[in-house]
Write a protein that binds this DNA or RNA. Structure first.
Length: 897
RNA sequence: GGGUGCGUAGCUCAGCGGUAGAGCAUCGCCUUCACACGGCGGGGGUCACAGGUUCAAUCCCUGUCGCACCCA
């Protein structure tokens, strides 16, 4: 016997263990079934399961379970990435708490410590994914720093270096002073800040008392200025072009140049140019072949080494000793000092309050400093071309389609990708330097040594590049490195390209684009055929969840409270393509009712002897009720399948919900009750068999969304051994015999019951009072149906009997119109005849209003002549229907007296 | 500033040329032997606004307003 209620916690742990230990999640490379592959977007090894994970992994698991049931050889590849910066931060914090540091420990000891941390704490999210029911092929779990994946990284690096797609360059990069590492454009977020715009006047060389005033948000970079730029069209400054200004505080002469970058409308129309500390200025500097002295170091402290030689004292304008004293100070202290000195020298014209966008490191949270350094770059523009083409040609398709524009927009104007990071945790760059600085790129030290021997003719001491690669470099290889590449494994041949990548839009640039570029370059084919982009999880007010807002919802807390199935079904029900999901505990609680409803329906079945019948053939059923249910189930199966095929999880959930609750529970089981009450009869045994069959269909349909409760019921009913629903075949529609007739009959019964219930409820007849149902103007077929279903009608419509009306309707009856029939409910003394008159008049008015609208349409000459004939015909029928209904209601009113 | 998406019942959303729908919430009745995490019934919408196309517009087009997000 099923327990009175479902206990999620107990069932989840038990069933997951059965699935996992029985190998139910395992892909089978030797299978001859069609493969279906999803690569997990590898979560950070430092991560723990948050609600966004719950969304994306629920979607993935639902798709995987669906395809597995469709007999596909399913590989859902698990794993995590090493999260260079995040992980290094975590371990550095640990060291700090122990009173030591990364630098004190040294590289090797530090890396040992990170691996130790990973072993102890790194598996959090993989444990949590099991609670979500995720059916990942765990024995295949990979980590981006695994030896195999590291080998793939080295191989790709070496190959691409050989092809000129990876190179060293001295460029301006986004420098994170907190991490003291370069970061990529994507790891920078601009934040709007309250700042100031400082107007500073620079004296013009050789023109006493003439100044040019520049406006800047970053006065601290002034010592690095190498020019003042004005727009060539700007009349105000035309005569100054070609002259020189004297750089305040420094004393160096800098040219006044003409460049379109300078916007006459902004500030004063004259801008200071600091190529080593601003991306726009860097471009100007390149155009005009200007020097690029740096005045900030890796800690964003002030340094004068590169300008010291050109500092000179100029009376009232520059004093080298002042700048020298500032050396070593932080950029913000230097800003204050420089502003103060300019003010003292009367070179500060004014200060305006100014809102500006300040780039910040997305992880460190500190302002980013553009810094001129030598780094490794990847020629992303070149790699982007095949990726763009693949999407243009539909070899990879985004769902929903509009995200392709986002993808294109970013790839079409992509900058070189800075792939080196000044960190220790990550894939060390496979480049070695000879004594003269010559670089040798090889997969290992021996390979580099061989190259060096060829170059030098002797064995020289080589030192490996200190830096590591951007984590996304290894993540970009994920779809094939996890399958064994560079080895040509059976898995690689079978599962690449993968079928679908599931992720949120915020990761299109970071990861999707990089996998596309790397996959096409290395494998010569797209990494996935479909990219399904889902929304983000928000709170019930639509706000993005964040720790600082305090509105985060912990998925594990929801699971503890309501069960995994409730959370998963909620997510499915709310996940339309590209739609954000607004989640709250209350909504999960309300969907838990559905889990409970399913459980109770099954329990009711069990109590009534419903059990799977071996060899049951749906095509052989005779009763209209059986045929109607099977036909309805076919519709549900078709809807659910189509919705999952189209990644419409919400439609899938709704189709299952509707069929289970509104059809199976509300009508079918109610209709079945009188039959079950008969005990043993051929009729009852057919209904029991059909009930079991369709319950099995429901369990299979719902399994991708609610794996645990469905699996539990599957086992309890003996549809299969415990834990085998996960591998049961996905249901297919199977035509029910004479479904049309069955549907007509059941629809009529449903209509009759609904009408009677409505009248009784509106006339406030208590359910305890039974009243006859008298049918006026009913034809033989209707009367036969009423007779066949009398028990059911009596039960569900609170009727004492159902029979044709003979003679006149008893005085004081309530009436309702059902097609050509008028339903008469003799309730003299029980109802308020005035209220009944009002009710009937309202009904009649409604029918007349509808008839009037349709009539108006049909009276329109151009409608009749220009609309499609079937639409015109349809409206003629509607008019006839409403007119007849109004007439019957009119007659009913007449009978009221 | 450029782009994308969205404004439909109190809330969350579906519909997308011809009858405006669901879930939740709400109201009324019902402790009927699966389920009160329930059953039955009801109310509730000038489909943001203004033009246009069309026999017909919530749906297509244009513009306006509002909200959200992305990029600069």
């Amino acid at each position: 016997m099923l327990e009175k209620s479902f206990s999620p916690a107990e069932a989840e742990a038990r069933l997951y263990a059965i699935w996992e230990s029985s190998g139910a999640f395992a892909a089978d490379p030797t299978s001859d079934a069609d493969p279906f592959t999803i690569m997990i977007p590898p979560p950070n090894v430092t991560g723990s399961l948050h609600i966004g994970h719950a969304l994306t992994f629920t979607v993935q698991d639902a798709l995987v379970r669906f395809r597995r049931m469709q007999r596909r050889d399913t590989l859902w590849q698990p794993g995590s990435d090493h999260a260079g910066i995040a992980t290094q931060m975590v371990v550095e914090r640990l060291l700090a708490a122990e009173g030591t540091s990364r630098k004190q420990q040294g590289r090797e000891a530090f890396l040992d410590r990170v691996w130790q941390w990973k072993a102890e704490s790194g598996g959090t999210i993989t444990r949590q994914l099991r609670r979500l029911g995720a059916s990942l092929d765990w024995p295949r779990e990979r980590f981006t720093m695994d030896e195999g994946l590291s080998r793939a990284v080295r191989r790709v690096f070496v190959e691409m270096h050989g092809q000129g797609l990876i190179y060293r360059d001295r460029r301006l990069v986004n420098w994170d002073p907190a991490f003291q590492s370069a970061i990529s454009d994507l790891e920078v977020e601009s934040r709007e800040m309250d700042g100031s715009l400082w107007y500073i006047r620079y004296p013009i060389e050789g023109v006493p008392d003439r100044f040019i005033t520049v406006a800047t948000t970053r006065p601290e970079t002034l010592p690095g200025d190498v020019a003042v730029a004005v727009n060539p069209e700007d009349e105000r400054y035309r005569d100054l072009i070609g002259r020189h200004a004297i750089l305040p505080l420094v004393g160096r002469r800098i040219p006044i140049i003409a460049d379109g970058y300078s916007d006459p409308e902004k500030g004063t129309g004259a801008v200071k140019i600091t190529p080593a500390h601003d991306f726009n200025d860097f471009a100007v500097g390149q155009r005009h072949a200007l020097p690029m002295p740096s005045i900030l170091d890796r800690q964003a402290g002030f340094v004068i080494d590169e300008i010291a030689g050109e500092m000179r004292a100029v009376e009232g304008i520059a004093d080298p000793a002042y700048l020298t004293r500032l050396a070593g100070q932080d950029r913000f202290a230097v800003r204050a000092a420089i502003v103060a000195e300019l003010e003292r020298l009367d070179l500060l014209v004014q200060v305006e309050r100014h809102r500006n966008q300040v780039p910040h490191g997305d992880r460190s949270g500190v302002p980013i400093e553009p810094l001129l350094t030598t780094q490794w770059f990847c020629n992303a523009a070149e790699l982007a071309k095949p990726a763009i083409r693949a999407v243009e040609e539909g070899r990879t398709v985004f769902v929903p389609r509009q995200w392709e524009n986002t993808f294109f927009a970013w790839l079409r104007e992509i900058e070189p990708w800075c792939i080196s990071r000044q960190l220790w945790w990550g894939h060390r760059i496979p480049a070695w330097y000879g004594p003269d600085g010559q670089v040798f790129v090889a997969e290992d030290a021996a390979g580099a040594a061989a190259l060096a021997r060829t170059a030098y003719g002797t064995d020289e001491v080589l030192t490996q590049d200190e830096d590591v690669l951007d984590t996304w470099f290894s993540s970009g290889l994920w779809p094939f490195s996890t399958l064994g590449w560079p080895d040509q494994t059976p898995e690689l041949a079978r599962y690449y390209p993968t079928d679908v990548l599931v992720t949120a839009f915020d990761i299109i640039f970071f990861w999707v684009a990089r996998m596309m570029m790397m996959g096409l370059h290395v494998m010569g084919d797209v990494p996935f055929r479909t990219v399904y982009i889902h929304g983000l999880v928000r709170d019930e007010r639509g706000q993005k969840m964040s720790k600082s807002k305090g509105n985060v919802i912990d998925p594990l807390a929801l699971i503890d409270q309501f069960g995994t199935d409730a959370l998963r079904f909620t997510i499915c029900a709310l996940t339309g393509p590209g739609r954000d999901v607004k989640l709250s505990p209350a909504i999960v609680e309300s969907y838990r009712s559905f889990v409970t409803k399913l459980w109770n329906a099954a329990r009711f079945c069990e109590m009534n002897g419903v059990a799977p019948v071996p060899g049951f053939d749906p095509a052989q059923v005779k009763l209209p009720l059986s045929r109607w249910l099977l036909d309805s189930a076919n519709v549900a199966v078709a809807e659910a399948t189509a919705a999952l095929d189209a990644y419409r999880l919400n439609d899938y959930a709704a189709a299952c919900y509707r069929f289970t609750w509104n059809t199976y529970c509300d009508w079918f089981l109610e209709f079945a009750k009188p039959v079950f009450a008969q005990g043993e009869s051929p009729e009852a045994s057919e209904i029991r068999a059909v009930a079991a069959h369709v319950l099995g269909t429901i369990l299979r349909l719902l399994h991708p969304a609610m794996p645990f409760v469905t699996e539990e019921l599957w086992g309890a009913f003996g549809f299969g051994a415990e834990g085998t629903l996960i591998r049961a075949p996905w249901p297919k529609p199977a035509a029910a015999a004479e479904a049309e007739a069955a549907r007509a009959e059941l629809d009529w019964i449903v209509g009759l019951i609904t009408e009677v219930r409505g009248v009784r409820s509106e006339m406030r007849v208590p359910p305890s009072i039974l009243a006859p149902i008298l049918l006026r103007d009913a034809d033989a077929e209707a009367l036969a149906r009423a007779a066949r279903w009398e028990d059911t009608i009596r039960r569900m419509a609170r009727a004492s009997e159902v029979r044709p009306l003979e003679g006149e309707a008893p005085a004081g009856s309530a009436q309702a119109v059902l097609g050509p029939i008028t339903i008469v409910l003799p309730l003299a003394g029980l109802i308020d005849l005035g209220a009944e008159r009002v009710r009937l008049e309202k009904e009649r008015a409604k029918a007349l209003e509808e008839a009037r609208k349709v009539q108006a349409k049909l009276s329109n000459e151009s409608f009749v002549s220009r609309a499609k004939p079937e639409v015109v015909e349809e409206n003629r029928e509607r008019l006839a229907g409403f007119t007849a209904e109004a007439a019957r209601l009119e007659a009913a009113l007449g009978r009221l007296g």
